[in-house]
Simulated scan of single mutants.
Amino acid sequence: MMKQALLGEFLHEAENTRKLLAMIPDSALEYRPQPHLWSVAQLASHIAEVYNWYEATFNQDEFDMGTYQYDKGDTSKASNILQKFEENVAKAKAVVESSDESKYMNTWTMSMGGSPIMPPMPKIQVIRGFLYNHLYHHRGELIAHLRATGNGVPSLYGPNYEESQRM
């Protein structure tokens, strides 16, 4: 039952993420509102990468960031980031579909070389916070970045500003 709820949200939100990533023009990739903030390319690439964390989160009780490796690929074109997203989201979907609900309450830890870097918590809390909500947070940042560059953004939960003005 819980798996079906997680899968339903996953599918809905992956489509929203796809719509957002598909609207990024190459001309906006280097934009960052302040020097210490991530660029559009870095945010979009990170969003795609979050889907790469599903296997370690759903299928392991410890995620060691000290051994984690990820190839972001070529982030100089928005289409490359979207392609990486598609690869990662397909793998993540398979992980959710094959997940074992009886393990959702297992204690999960993120560590770095054996030392915890996040407090241990039930895996389901990590799935909702570390995977799902974390992604939504970065999508919001990306939307703000795109708006600041004068680019459009998709409607995700109802009409966006432009659509609401036509009503």
Rank of each mutant, 00 (worst) to 15 (best):
M1S: 09
M1L: 10
M2V: 04
A5P: 03
L6W: 05
F10I: 06
H12W: 03
E13Q: 01
E13M: 04
N16I: 12
T17M: 02
L21D: 00
I24Q: 00
D26F: 02
S27Y: 01
L29I: 09
L29H: 03
R32H: 08
R32E: 06
Q34T: 15
Q34Y: 15
L37F: 08
L37M: 11
S39F: 04
V40Y: 01
A41G: 07
Q42M: 09
Q42G: 00
Q42H: 08
L43T: 03
S45R: 00
H46S: 07
A48G: 07
V50Y: 01
Y54M: 05
A56W: 05
T57I: 14
F58S: 10
F58G: 04
E62W: 00
D64Q: 12
D64L: 08
M65N: 09
M65Y: 12
M65H: 12
G66R: 13
Y68V: 12
Q69V: 12
Y70L: 03
D71V: 13
D71P: 15
G73H: 03
Q83P: 08
Q83M: 14
E86F: 01
K91E: 10
S98K: 15
S102P: 13
K103I: 12
Y104M: 10
W108V: 01
T109A: 08
M110W: 03
S111K: 12
M112K: 08
P116R: 08
P116Q: 07
I117W: 06
P119G: 05
P120G: 07
P122Q: 15
K123I: 11
I124T: 11
V126M: 00
I127W: 11
R128E: 02
F130L: 13
L131G: 01
L131D: 02
L131C: 01
Y132F: 09
Y132T: 08
Y132Q: 05
N133V: 09
H137M: 15
H138P: 05
I143V: 14
A144Q: 03
H145M: 09
H145L: 12
R147M: 07
G150Q: 01
G152F: 00
L156H: 08
L156P: 08
G158Y: 11
G158S: 11
G158W: 14
P159L: 11
N160S: 15
N160I: 11
Y161C: 06
Y161F: 13
